[in-house]
Design a protein around this nucleic acid. Structure first.
Lengths: 194, 194
DNA sequence: CGACGCATCTAGACCGATTGATATAAATGT
DNA sequence: ACATTTATATCAATCGGTCTAGATGCGTCG
C-alpha cells in the first residue's frame, strides 16, 4: 500500500484545484477530504503546494489525454470522435445524478491555467505544455482524416480554445448548453475545411 | 474627491481579480496598490471582499460591453466588427510595450467566472448574467446582418465560448496566437451560416 | 523461526505570517 | 458643529510550512 496515501492526496488535490482553484484550496481541506495527515503530504510532496499543483497538472494531462485518445481511436471520423467526446462531457452536467464531481477527469482545467498565468511560471509552462499535448492529438487525427497539414494545425488550435471556453461557460452556467452548442456547430466548421 | 477613493479601490481590485483571481488577491495588496487605507475600503464596501468582487464584475460587464458595442456599431458587417475586436485584444499581447496590463478592460474574465462557479452563488450568477449580456450584443448584430434568428442565437453562443477560450489560452501561452487563429478561422464559420 | 535494526511513513503539535474583518479615534470638509 | 472619510491598531482564524516523536513495514541475521 506504499503509494495509496500519495495517490489519495494527489487525487483529492487535483479535484479541488479543478473546482476551487489553487489559491481557493487550502492544504487542510485537501488533507481533511483525503483523510491523510499533514506529515504524509510533505513526505510525498516535499516541495509543498506548488509540487502538488504540478503533479495535479501532469495527472490531468495524461488522464484527459487518454480520454481524448480513446475517442479519437474509437471513431474513424474526426467529427464523430469529437462529437462523442463533447457529448460525454455534456452528459456530466445533467444534474440529478451527482456525477459532475468527476468532470475534472474529462475536461480541461481553465481555472488552474488562468490562475497560473501570472502567478507561477513553472505552473504556467506546465499548463501551456498540456494544452499543446492535447492539441497535438486533434492534429494527428485531422491529418489522418485527410486534412491538409496547415489546416489541421489551425483547426486543432481552434478546437483547443473552443472546448476550453465551452467548458468554462458550462461550469459558470451550471449547464451543458455551451458544450451542446459546440457539438451542433462543429460539423459546419469542419465541412468548410474538408 | 468623494468617489475618487472608491473608484481607485474598485479599479485596482478589478485589475487584480482579473489577473490573479479572487482568492489569489488579498485586500492588503489591493490597498497597497491603490494607495488607500483599509478604513476606506470597508466604508465604501461594507460587505467586504465579496461586494468588491461583485462590483468588479459589474464594472467589467459594462466596460467590456461598451467596447463590444463600440466595435459592433463601427462596422456594418459583423465579420469586420468581430475581427476588429479580436485584433484589438490580440494587440495587447504584443509584448515590448507593457500594455497588456490593461487587457482586463477589453476581455472576458474567465478566471473570476471559473472561481465563482462553485464557490459563491452570488458571484456565479453575476458572471453568468454578464456573459449573457455580452452574448446578446453579438446576437443583435447578427440579426441586423440578416442572420436567421435561431442561427444568430447559436452563433452568438459560439462566439461567447470561443472568445472566452481563446483569451484564456492566450493568457496561458503569453501569446496572442489563439486570438489570431480565431480571427482567421471565424470568416469560414460565418460564411457557412450566411 | 524469532528478534532485531533500519528506513519509511504517519500523526499532529506547532510556527510565524497573513488572511478578511472590526473598532475607534482623529482628521477632513462643508 | 456635524457628517463624512481616513488612518491604524487589533482581532480571531487560517494560511503554508516545519519539526519531531512514534508507528509501521520488512529484510537480515542469530
Amino acid at each position: 500500500m506504499t503509494k495509496q496515501t500519495k495517490d489519495k492526496i494527489l487525487e483529492t488535490a487535483t479535484r479541488l484545484f479543478y473546482f476551487q482553484g489553487f489559491h481557493g484550496t487550502g492544504l487542510n481541506q485537501i488533507l481533511k477530504e483525503s483523510g491523510c495527515p499533514k506529515g504524509s503530504l510533505y513526505h510525498y510532496f516535499p516541495n509543498g503546494k506548488e509540487q502538488l499543483a504540478e503533479e495535479a497538472i501532469e495527472l490531468s494531462k495524461l488522464r484527459i489525454g487518454a480520454v481524448i485518445q480513446h475517442y479519437m481511436t474509437s471513431y474513424p471520423n474526426v467529427e464523430d470522435a469529437l462529437n462523442a467526446h463533447l457529448l460525454a462531457m455534456a452528459k456530466l452536467f445533467d444534474m440529478e445524478n451527482g456525477v459532475m464531481e468527476y468532470s475534472y477527469t474529462l475536461m480541461p482545467f481553465g481555472l488552474l491555467a488562468a490562475e497560473s498565468a501570472f502567478t507561477s511560471e513553472r505552473l504556467r509552462k506546465a499548463c501551456e505544455n498540456t494544452y499543446k499535448y492535447w492539441e497535438s492529438m486533434y492534429y494527428t487525427k485531422l491529418v489522418s482524416n485527410g486534412y491538409r497539414d496547415d489546416v489541421a494545425v489551425t483547426i486543432s488550435k481552434t478546437l483547443s480554445a473552443w472546448i476550453e471556453g465551452a467548458v468554462t461557460l458550462s461550469l459558470t452556467q451550471h449547464s451543458n448548453e455551451p458544450l451542446l452548442t459546440m457539438s451542433n456547430v462543429l460539423p459546419a466548421l469542419l465541412k468548410q475545411f474538408k
